[in-house]
Design a protein around this nucleic acid. Structure first.
Lengths: 193, 193
DNA sequence: ATGTGCATGTAACTGGTTACATGATTCG
DNA sequence: CGAATCATGTAACCAGTTACATGCACAT
């Protein structure tokens, strides 16, 4: 729990900030981005929901339906929002893998504006550093050249480039429009950083 | 073990096809790409090596050194190569996350040429499909627009684009030079899908 | 002596998957 | 009457991390 490894509980909590959802809803949504961040199995999702419930971070609302089995719709509580907020602004490990970063991105609405910018900048510098490493490794590779290694390194380079482009774009936008409503909207001034 | 989730054992085995290495060597190497694929802790690496050893997939060679502690240098055996080969050409799950794909890429030298091409093509079509999903989701997003979601989806799109570019490039190269020796070398014609 | 880098390892724990079980409702 | 989809759940298992322990060798 220390340096914030994204886990199902936090991800679920994050999704519930957007709208109340049932376990099934969450699964459906996450399956649609499974390629990007993977999607938890029911064996981890449902226990996670139960844990959140027991900690008072969410509430249930059993919604019967005459044409389908009844669903348990979960909503985040104020305590839940607070917990998420605290968690989300915590420092991340220096070598966060892509998946973890994107997961956090999904929770971005729970960042303070400053926090989000800092987060993106941090990622940017991490990726830049790693790209340098990859470039060096590729240069060191040349002749003897294992095919797989070369492919993998090039792949990494391409990903890094894409990330940096994306990050720069997002940062530009964020820094230009200094006080856009949408960004601030959900941002209850929690810890007025 | 069924649909080939990349694990430490296979990754290690793959690295050992390139040159004999000690546990420490492996760690160092993987740490340099930790951003891309993560690097196993000693708590998973060393037991993995032991398991490989017990299964006869690698051999050890204790190399003393007068200025440093002695190292246990592992080499892959013929049985190891065979196991890896069998494993590496196995079908992958339809929604392989990036990390797993890159891991397999690192083992690419153990693919048959046809297998590698098939693998890349498969990835390409997977990514294309997923990109379509992302595009659709972004289109469905518009007004109400959760910031985090938008950022995450754009990120995914950028990654997908980068991957496709990379894959196309690699495929072009592979298809142009039709019968390079190195690639064919280890190549049994598996299931010609 | 004590500290730092190299090098290998282990035990307890955690988070997640797999594979299964259950049940309601609709469709053919 | 199955079969399919919706929907929730559980228990056994597994891979990996954390945090620790060990020991060599060289430098200060």
């Amino acid at each position: 729990m220390s340096t914030s490894t994204v886990n199902v509980r936090h991800l679920v909590l994050g999704l519930l900030t957007q709208r109340p959802m049932s376990g099934y809803d969450i699964r459906k949504f996450l399956r649609s981005l499974s390629w990007l961040i993977g999607s938890p199995s029911s064996g981890s999702l449902y226990p996670a929901l139960r844990a959140l419930l027991q900690n008072g971070l969410v509430t249930v609302d059993v919604v019967p339906s005459q044409d389908k089995p009844s669903r348990k719709v979960y909503s985040i509580t104020e305590a839940g929002r607070q917990t998420l907020q605290e968690w989300v602004e915590r420092p991340v490990a220096p070598d966060t893998p892509l998946k973890a970063f994107v997961m956090r991105l999904i929770l971005a609405s729970n960042f303070s504006r400053a926090g989000l910018i800092a987060h993106l900048k941090q990622r940017s510098s991490q990726v830049t550093a790693h790209r340098a490493v990859l470039e060096q490794m590729i240069r060191a590779l040349d002749e003897k050249a294992d095919l797989g290694q070369r492919l993998a390194l090039n792949y990494g380079l391409a990903i890094a480039g894409a990330e940096l482009g994306c990050l720069d774009g997002a940062l530009d936008q964020l820094l230009e429009e200094p006080l856009s409503e949408e960004v601030m909207e959900g941002a209850r001034v929690t810890n007025a950083t």
